[in-house]
Structure formats: structure tokens, C-alpha cells
Simulated assay, not measured.
Amino acid sequence: MEKVVLAFSGGLDTSVCIKLLEEKYNMEVITACVDVGQPREEIERPASVAVDLGNYKHHTLDAQREFAEDYIFKAIKANALYEGYPLSTALARPLIAMKIVELAKKEGATTIAHGCTGKGNDQFRFEAIIRSMSDCDVIAPIRDLNLTRTEEVEYAKSCDIPLPSDKMYSIDENLWGRAIEGDILEDPMVEPPEDAFSWTKSSTDSPEEPQILEMEFENGVPISLDGEKMGPLDLINKCNEIAGLHGIGRVDIIEDRIIGLKSREIYETPGAFLIITAHHALEQITLTRSELKFGENITSTYSELIYNGLWHDPLREDLDHIIDHMQRRVRGTVKIRLHKGSMRIVGRKSPFSLYQQDVVSFEDKALDQREMTGMVKNYAMQAAFYNKICKKD
């Protein structure tokens, strides 16, 4: 009997997949959960479910530090935002897939399986990595058998598979963010109820007093909060806590999926918004105008590569080289004011600052204003010719 490694969350889809892989595909199932910062119960549940469903061999793979240092920090340096929000689920998928590939090789498995449907993005993100990084076959039982959610529930009952808790929403959570979808949220006119949120306070429930936070960066990544040095995991978690307390990081968006469908998605990314906002503010004082302009193109391209499941594309590696070179000067401290769902940069300083206060001051005479006369006179020359020649009455 051939072995298959199933990326396993212990939810309805993947629990059904265990039995389908045995019954429909005649395979020996090994389950695996990759820890990228989910709540502890989300890590413990898959192991427990694997035992309850038939004492399947299960692996829990800790990838939190790798996720923070090799994925999140790269995304920070690139200011990675897709259609206006920080990427969390999409950013974790390639790492999860690579860990599953490594496990499949160790276990001698010929096949890797996942519980994705044929309507979402994750099928692309998982399979792009699996097919690029291994010779394993890929099975997606829910997609391949064209199952509806109702059919899954009926099959689960027929196989005595315990149904997960009656959560209203489908939730994916990791160190960098929380994604909420499904149920009443599929109606784009329904306001998300407060029980959909977990990481962020509403603006009415957030503290009455604002908080001023200082964040220090080195080579484009955060290293301390209010003067306290922190490792990547502690710093990101603390930023999630602080920004979430002040109601920062809620996103309600109609998102464009890879296959062309539009979907209503709710996100909580408090720490990501806080860090990326501070990072960009520091770039504004340390990078040149042309670097900042070019950086906008990098951000757009980098974010689309992540969203589209192309983390392993050589272009992403090429962009990392450019970004890392630019980020050598993104060093310094940013001061942020957080209050009632709003976040405002109120200070920034850097040893590589291109802001020269003495020169820009209205009281300075080092820059002789009279020397600007010729420059201004000939400014917008082509536009002037156009208006004189092409707009004659």
C-alpha cells in the first residue's frame, strides 16, 4: 500500500480526506500539521483527531521561527500588501508545503494530499511548491470528487467522523494574521459581527487614552519596541497585542482570487499593519525619491507573487537581492501614535536620514534661493510647448 502525507488541520475537509484516501484511493495515510503560529489548540487538535479517527501516524512540525525570519521579515522589507492588506495565509502556504514535502521524503511517501476545494487559492499555493520541489503525486479529494460541504457532512456521518465544533466561520490563523470567511460573511452587505473578530478591539471598546510606541529597525526589520530588544516571534506577537488593543488591523475586502472569482474576506492583521506602516515611514526618510518610486513597483510585484503561490519563482529571489541592498540604510526609530482604530506616524529618525533640517528650514541661506530662478523658468518645458502649439484657437 502506497503512503500519502496529508496536510492536516483536523477540520471537516481534512478529516473527511483521511477516510476518502483510504476508501477511494487505497492509501496508507500519514497526517501532518505545520505550526506557523496558530493558537495552541489548533496545533493540538490535529494530533488528537488523528488518534480518534484511527490512530494514524501524525507529525507536528514547528516552523514558527523560520516563518518569522525567512518569510515575514522578507514581506516587511518589501512592504508586501495585496489589494491593500498584509498577506498572512498566502505567506505561510509555501513554507507549509515545503515542510510537507520534506516529511514525505523522510516517510518514503509517493503522494501528498490536501483538503483544498477547487474554488480557492490554496490549491495553487500548495501544488506549485509540491510539484516544483518533489516528484510526489498530488491528491485533492474534495476537489477531485467535486464534493459540496453538505456532501462532506453526510459522508462524515456515514463514517462516524466526529464533526468539528459548530463554528460559524472558516478561520485560518498564523503569526502574521487571521483570515475569516464563510457563513453570513459571504453576503457582502452583511456587516461582520463582533464575534468574528478575536485579535482586535472595536474602536468603541479600545482604550480612551492614545499610546505612543517607538519601534526600532535595522536593515529594514524591527528589532525593538520602546527600547526593549526582542526576538522576531516575541516582537511580532507584541505588535499584534498592542495594535489589536487599539483596534488597528481590521480589513473587510472584496478580493480577487487567482481563478477570477471575487470573494468577500475579513482579515485581522494588527501587527502587520503596525510594522509595515512604521517601516515605510522609515524608508521615506532614508531612501531617495527614485528608490521609493521603484519600491512601489517592487511591492506590487512581490505581493502578487506571494498571493499567486509563486514564492519559489526566481523573480522573487531576484527582488530579494534588490530589496536587501536598499534596506541596508533603513535603520532607525519610528514613533507611532495609536488611538481608537487609527494609527499615525508622529516621529522618525535615522543615521542615514536624507532629511536635512538645516537646509530645508525657511531660515537657512546655505541654499541660495536666487539660483532656482533658471531651473523654475525652464521647468515643464514640453508641457509649455504642447499648450502653445496644440491648443491654439
Rank of each mutant, 00 (worst) to 15 (best):
G108K: 03
T150E: 15
L145M: 07
A68V: 01
L87Y: 05
T150P: 03
I112M: 05
T89Q: 12
G115K: 04
D62Y: 12
D144H: 04
A104W: 01
Y85M: 15
N121M: 09
L145K: 14
E66M: 13
R65E: 09
I129R: 04
A92F: 01
E151L: 06
A80K: 06
A113H: 02
L163D: 11
D122R: 07
R93Y: 10
A92T: 02
T89C: 15
L103W: 05
A128G: 07
T117W: 14
D62R: 09
T150F: 09
E154F: 14
A140L: 15
T117G: 10
S132H: 09
I171N: 09
D160V: 13
R149F: 10
Y71E: 01
T110V: 10
T117K: 15
T117D: 12
F124K: 08
N79I: 07
I139M: 03
A97N: 06
K74D: 13
E107G: 03
T89G: 12
G108T: 04
L145G: 04
A113M: 06
P162A: 11
K119V: 15
D122W: 01
I130M: 15
L147P: 02
F73W: 11
A80Q: 15
C116Q: 08
R131G: 07
E152F: 01
R125A: 08
T110K: 15
E69W: 03
F124E: 06
I100R: 00
R125E: 08
S165N: 09
A75Q: 03
Q123P: 10
A75G: 10
A80V: 13
A140E: 11
D135P: 03
Q64I: 09
K167L: 15
K74W: 12
D166A: 13
P141N: 12
A75Y: 02
I100N: 00
E66G: 06
D135H: 08
A68H: 00
V153N: 01
D70K: 08
C159Q: 15
E107S: 04
F67K: 00
